[in-house]
C-alpha cells in the first residue's frame, strides 16, 4: 500500500485503490440499501453488523502493511462497561419490541405537560420553549428536541402559539423542522409559524436578556426550559415566575437543577429528562432502553457497594480494574 501516514490527504489516496472500488461497487451499496430497507429490527442489526465488519475488514487490508496497535489495554474496563451497556440497552429494546408495552413510573413533570399546554390554550397566551445553551451535538439538546416533537404535536392540536428563541443556529434549524413535522403529524400544518422559532445570539447573557424580554412582552402562560442550562437558569426561571407562568424544567446540569426546583412548578431530575420522549410517546423501543438503563443503575449500585466494602477491607483490585 502506498499510503503514507502523516499526509492528511492520503485518505483520498487509498480511496482510489482497486480493492476499494471493487468493494465499494458491490458490497457497500448492498449493505447500505439493506439498512435503508423497511425490515425488522433483527434484520437491521444484522445489516449494521455486516457494514461494521465490512469497514473493519476493508481497513485492515488497506493498511495491512502498517504497524497497527489495535487496542489500548488501559481502556479494558471502559470497553467492558460499554459492552455491558450496549447488551443491556439493546436486550431491553428487543424485549420492549416483543412485549409491545412497558410500564415506567409516573413522572409528575411529564404528566403536567398536558396541563401546561391546556392552560396556555385556555388563557389564550403562547407557550415558550427554550433548549438553553446546548449545541446540537449535545445529547441533552437532542433529548430536548425529542420532547419538543411530542409537545409540539399537543400544541398543534390546541392551536396555541409556540415561541422558541434559540442560542444556536443549528438548533434553530432542527427545532423548525421538528415543530413543522409535529404540526403536520397533528393535522395542522397551516398553524406552523416558522418566524416564531428563531436564532437570537450565541452570547449567554445576551440570550438571557432576549428570553427575559420575550417573557415580559408576550407573557407566555407556560415556560418549558428543557436542555442545557448554566448560570442563567435562575434568571430565566425567576422571570417566568414573576409573570405567573407555569414552568416545567429539565436539564443535564446537576447544579442548575436546584435553581429550577426552587423557581419552577415541575422539574425533571437526572435521567427523567432523557426518559421524557419515551414517556410521552409510549414507544416500546424507547421505554425498553429506559428499562435497560435501570438495570445498569442496579449494576453500578452493586459495584459501588462492593467497591466500598472491598476498599474498606484493603482490597483495591475492583477500583484498580474499573479505574482503567
Amino acid at each position: 500500500m502506498e499510503c503514507i501516514p502523516p499526509v492528511a490527504g492520503c485518505s483520498i489516496h487509498w480511496m482510489h485503490s482497486k480493492t476499494f472500488f471493487l468493494d465499494k461497487q458491490v458490497l457497500f451499496p448492498t449493505l447500505v440499501s439493506n439498512l435503508s430497507r423497511r425490515m425488522n429490527l433483527k434484520g437491521k442489526i444484522r445489516s449494521l453488523i455486516s457494514l461494521l465488519v465490512f469497514f473493519v475488514s476493508f481497513s485492515s487490508t488497506a493498511l495491512a502493511a502498517e504497524e497497527v496497535r489495535w487496542f489500548d489495554p488501559q481502556k479494558t474496563g471502559l470497553l467492558i462497561g460499554i459492552f455491558i451497556t450496549i447488551v443491556l440497552v439493546f436486550g431491553f429494546i428487543l424485549y420492549g419490541k416483543k412485549k409491545g408495552s412497558l410500564k415506567i413510573r409516573s413522572i409528575p413533570g411529564l404528566e403536567a405537560m398536558d396541563e401546561a399546554v391546556g392552560r396556555a390554550t385556555e388563557m389564550g397566551k403562547p407557550i415558550l420553549f427554550s433548549s438553553g445553551l446546548g449545541k446540537m451535538e449535545r445529547v441533552a439538546t437532542m433529548a430536548s428536541m425529542n420532547i419538543l416533537g411530542s409537545v409540539a404535536e399537543k400544541i398543534a392540536e390546541y392551536n396555541t402559539p409556540l415561541i422558541i428563541p434559540n442560542y444556536d443556529p443549528m438548533v434553530t434549524t432542527v427545532a423548525q423542522e421538528v415543530v413543522k413535522e409535529s404540526f403536520s403529524k397533528a393535522g395542522h400544518p397551516e398553524s406552523f409559524k416558522q418566524e416564531n422559532i428563531y436564532f437570537v445570539t450565541q452570547s449567554q447573557f445576551g440570550y438571557v436578556a432576549a428570553v427575559d424580554g420575550i417573557m415580559l412582552r408576550e407573557k407566555p402562560a407556560t415556560n418549558l426550559f428543557l436542555g442545557t442550562f448554566e448560570a442563567e437558569s435562575l434568571i430565566l426561571a425567576e422571570t417566568g415566575n414573576s409573570i405567573g407562568a407555569l414552568q416545567i424544567a429539565g436539564t443535564d446540569s446537576t447544579i442548575q437543577l436546584s435553581f429550577f426546583i426552587v423557581a419552577c412548578d415541575y422539574t425533571l431530575i437526572g435521567e427523567e429528562f432523557f426518559a421524557a420522549s419515551g414517556y410521552l410517546t409510549k414507544d416500546p423501543l424507547v421505554l425498553g432502553s429506559i428499562k435497560g438503563q435501570d438495570f445498569l443503575k442496579l449494576i453500578i449500585g452493586i459495584l459501588i457497594i462492593a467497591g466500598g466494602i472491598f476498599s474498606t477491607l484493603g482490597y483495591n483490585f475492583l477500583i484498580n480494574f474499573l479505574g482503567k
Binding site: V89, A140, M142, N146, V174, E177, V178, I269, F274, D283
Partner: peptide
C-alpha cells in the same frame, strides 16, 4: 450517574435510529 446513563441510552437510540425526532422526520 442517572444523567450519564440517560445520555448513553439516548445516544445509542440515536445511533441506531430508534430516536429520530431530532431529524424532524419523526
Amino acid at each position: 450517574i442517572g444523567i450519564g446513563l440517560g445520555s448513553i441510552a439516548t445516544s445509542l437510540r440515536i445511533i441506531v435510529g430508534i430516536e429520530r425526532t431530532y431529524l424532524g422526520k419523526g
